[in-house]
């Protein structure tokens, strides 16, 4: 069962349009939890953390490429969100607000010089060991490296939307909610991000993607 609420504007949230959205029973529960957190009940934050921890850690992993750092960053983002929870408007969805804190932590993290980066990707369809030749293994490893290097070379804005779509498999509506932008903007921003990713990958591999011709 759902109900439509008129959401009051909160200038600190950074939203420029008054976009009504559908509040589900689950979101009402979240609102109650946030209000309890704002009254100082730390325990009320646990269900919120539990609900979003996988999504948050996966996003951080897509950004920084290291599982330990991704867990640290996502936990730090939750801790900072709790510290600032009194400034949060409980009538808004929590995750988009939290996502900004997390993204900024990730940006600051990769700006540091002592930062260990790995390739956090694996085959989407796992290959059973012993069923592929060393050459095939090497090719797949090269492919993973290519995608990861390409993602690392695009702008922060492009990387963000690519991680949400390509690695976290969010629908356009979900991406629009997380980034707090209209769905039409998601369409154009994602397509342009893919164009630039294609260019970066072509630069790295020096071989245009299959099916493409020089324009």
């Amino acid at each position: 069962m759902t109900a439509t609420l008129s959401i009051p504007m909160n200038p600190s949230y950074g939203r420029t349009q008054d976009i009504p959205f559908v509040v589900t029973e689950l979101d009402r529960e979240e609102r109650d939890l946030i209000l309890r957190c704002q009254r100082g009940e730390k325990a009320a934050f646990e269900p919120i953390v539990t609900r979003y921890m996988r999504r948050a850690a996966a996003f951080a992993l897509g950004w920084v490429g290291n599982r330990d750092d991704a867990l640290d960053l996502s936990q730090e983002a939750f801790a900072r969100a709790y510290r600032a929870i009194h400034r949060f408007d409980a009538d808004r969805p929590f995750y988009p607000w939290f996502h900004r804190i997390l993204r900024n932590l990730c940006i600051n993290h990769i700006g540091r010089s002592r930062y260990k980066r790995e390739i956090p990707l694996e085959d989407a369809i796992p290959v059973r060991s012993g069923t592929s030749s060393p050459q095939e293994d090497a090719e797949r490893s090269e492919l993973r490296k290519l995608v990861w290097e390409g993602i690392a070379r695009v702008s922060e804005q492009d990387r963000e939307i690519l991680i949400l779509r390509e690695f976290q498999d969010l629908s356009y509506t979900e991406i629009a909610d997380v980034l707090d932008i209209p769905k039409g903007t998601v369409m154009s921003r994602l397509h342009n991000a893919r164009r630039r990713l294609r260019d970066r990958i072509n630069e790295i591999s020096r071989v245009p993607l299959a099916g493409s011709e020089e324009e």
Partner: peptide, 10 residues
């Protein structure tokens, strides 16, 4: 290309 890979699970 991007669909052939995924993030490693925790």
């Amino acid at each position: 290309l991007t669909g052939s890979v995924q993030l490693r699970a925790f």
